[in-house]
Every structure is written in C-alpha cells, then in structure tokens.
C-alpha cells in the first residue's frame, strides 16, 4: 500500500471497514445474506478500500462460548465477495479460535486482506498463521487486541514481532474503548518507530473518543484506520466511519472516499443492519473504564439479569480479573462470586 506523500498531494489514510465483522457483536452474530449484501454493495459504491466480514470474533469463532453465527463463514464470504467490485474483502482470524484451514477456505472464497489477531502480549501465536496468509498470497496484517493492557514499549516489541513473522501492516485495537488520545499517540508513535510497515489503529467509542483517538493515531504515524458505519459494534460501538471520513477531509487527509457515498452507506447500515444505533449508556461507559472487551456487553447483561447482580459491578469485577476476549466463560463465575459476596 502506498502511504508516502509526494509534495502537493494530500497525505493518504486507508480506511478499513469491519462493519460486517465487528458490528456482529451488536446483533449476536445474526446478520443474514440480504443484510450483508446490502451493506457490502453500499460500501463498494463508496469506494471503501477494505470491507471486512465474518463472525464478530472472526473466522472459526462461531461457538456456544462466543455466540453462534446465523451463517457459516463460507456463506458470509461468498455473499460479500459477490457484492464487491472495487473494494477488497478482509477477514479476521485469531489463532486458537480459527485455524489455517479457515484461512485457506477464506482466501479460496476471495479474501484479499487477512488479519491475524492476538492479545496484546501474545504475538507469538501469530507466527504460523501470518506465514500461511503470506503463502496464500493474501495481504497479511497483524493486530494486537486489548492493547490498553500493555505499555507502549511492549506493544512496539510485539508489533515488531508481527512484522518479523511477515505482517505487511501491524497495529493495535482499543478493544475495550479505554484509551485517551494521548495514550494512543504514545503507543502508535512507539510502534511506528519500531516497524517499517504501515501502522493500524482500531478504536471503540466507550469514552466518546474513538474519532479523536483515530486522529491522534494518524498524527502519530498510523495510516490504516478501522471504522464502522454508524459505529456499528457492541455497546458504545466503534469509530464512526462517516464521521471519521468527514473529519479527515476537514483535516486535509485523503481517504479516497466520497462523503455523499459514505453517508449513503451509513444510512443503509442504519436501516438494514441494526435495531438501534450504538449509544454510550452507563454500562458501556463503565466497561470502557474497566478495560473489558466491548464484545462482552451482551453476555454480561444477560448474566447480570439471570444472577441478579448489577452489570456495572460485574464489569468492574471482570476488569479486575483482566479478562480478555474469548474468556466469556468467566462471566458467570465472576457473577456468582459477586452474588455470594453480597
């Protein structure tokens, strides 16, 4: 990807759109083929560079533990692939949830960009799968989840490892929506100084800072930014795509995306994908402060109701346990401990 700027050109930012992947957390992974097709066509018409699709936790993650998707991975990929004429198709896979077989199937279904994810200190688990993604001829990217749990120097080391394993872009996800802009700037700067590949930032809006954090990331050296239409995502949602595009336009960055077209895509997302737009309610605000994975919102609310505990207390207790995505089984355990202690 070309991120260099020759004089006279506006600096370029590549928008990566996981509406049809991360948005799945807001609807229990239940998007159907018509919904996927409608949004993918609108995103393609808006010339959004990468449209990511899949279960909320990526390839192979459909399960009782995390939530069973309405559609198998293959149907999701086939539907979106058929709808895209300009945009590239992205997939997300975390080793331990998905496997190399899932990657091979995804690339056979036309995935162009393959993101391999690991928790912020666990880059070591991506070595094999980044290699597989490269061998398959896809663009391989490496991302670190729950990145607020590690200090800037650690994230820089982990990103350097991702790049060494073959990642062609590396970066961090603010999976809990915990960062302030200065946190992001410090981390992205450390990463950009440690690697020679483009740096990715993926924000969540629990503290109403996702767009500001994305801008801080760009100014610190990030050039691939994740954003979803209407911020479609669990709880407070993600960085809001159409707002980000408008803000970047004002700030003088070129995304290659037309405002009218992205506004239309966002309208389609609102009308077709979501029951309600993401909102920063009390629970989402506390989950961001507690540093808990945003995708835990629905299971936490359900468990809190069932066990008769306050969801805010449950989020705070899970934050103290430093739970990471994939550990949904701990929610009921921690709820019972809270109940017994009260």
């Amino acid at each position: 990807m070309d991120i260099s700027t020759s004089s006279g050109q506006r600096p370029r930012v590549l928008i990566h759109d996981p509406t049809l992947r991360d948005g799945h957390h807001a609807v229990g992974h239940q998007l159907d083929t018509d919904q996927l097709r409608a949004y993918a066509e609108a995103a393609d018409a808006a010339r959004i560079p990468v449209v990511e699709v899949g279960h909320g936790n990526g390839l192979g993650a459909s399960s009782l533990q995390i939530g069973q998707a309405k559609l198998p991975d293959a149907s999701m990929l086939k539907t979106v692939r058929e709808a895209l004429t300009h945009s590239r198709m992205g997939v997300f896979m975390a080793p331990g949830w998905g496997t190399a077989d899932d990657l091979r199937a995804a690339v056979a279904h036309g995935a162009d960009v393959v993101r391999i994810a690991a928790h912020c200190t666990e880059a070591g688990v991506t070595e094999r799968h980044l290699g597989v993604a490269r061998d398959l001829g896809a663009e391989a990217q490496g991302v670190l989840l729950m990145s607020h749990m590690a200090v800037p120097g650690q994230l820089a080391e982990q990103c350097a490892a991702l790049a060494q394993f073959g990642a062609q872009a590396v970066g961090i996800m603010d999976s809990a929506g915990h960062y302030l802009p200065t946190d992001v700037a410090e981390r992205v700067h450390a990463i950009a100084s440690a690697v020679d590949v483009p740096v990715i930032f993926h924000g969540h809006n629990n503290l109403s800072l996702a767009v500001a954090n994305s801008l801080a990331a760009i100014e610190a050296g990030a050039s691939i930014i994740d954003a979803t239409a209407r911020g479609f995502g669990a709880g407070a949602g993600n960085t809001q795509l159409e707002v980000l595009v408008a803000v970047l336009q004002r700030r003088g960055f070129d995304t290659g995306i037309g405002l009218r077209e992205v506004l239309h895509a966002a309208d389609v997302a609102e009308a077709r994908l979501m029951k309600a737009q993401p909102v920063i309610d009390s629970v989402s605000l506390v989950s961001g402060l507690a540093g808990v994975f945003s995708g835990f919102r629905q299971p936490v609310l359900a468990t809190a109701l069932c066990e008769g505990v306050d969801p805010l207390d449950l989020f705070l207790a899970l934050g103290e346990r430093q739970v990471v995505a994939g550990q949904e089984d701990l929610i009921a355990d921690v709820a019972r401990q809270l109940k017994d202690a009260s």
């Binding site: 331990g96 928790h119 666990e122 430093q322 550990q327």
Partner: peptide, 21 residues
Amino acid sequence: VKVMVNLSPARPAPPFRVVMT
C-alpha cells in the same frame, strides 16, 4: 466437537481453566 484455546496475559497469572459444554 469444537475446541478453542485462549492465552491469558493477566497478572497474577490465572490457573489453567477448561470449560466444557
């Protein structure tokens, strides 16, 4: 049968946990 694996970076490190359904 579906098997999934997590690694936890939490400190102090948690014991090995296996959940079956």
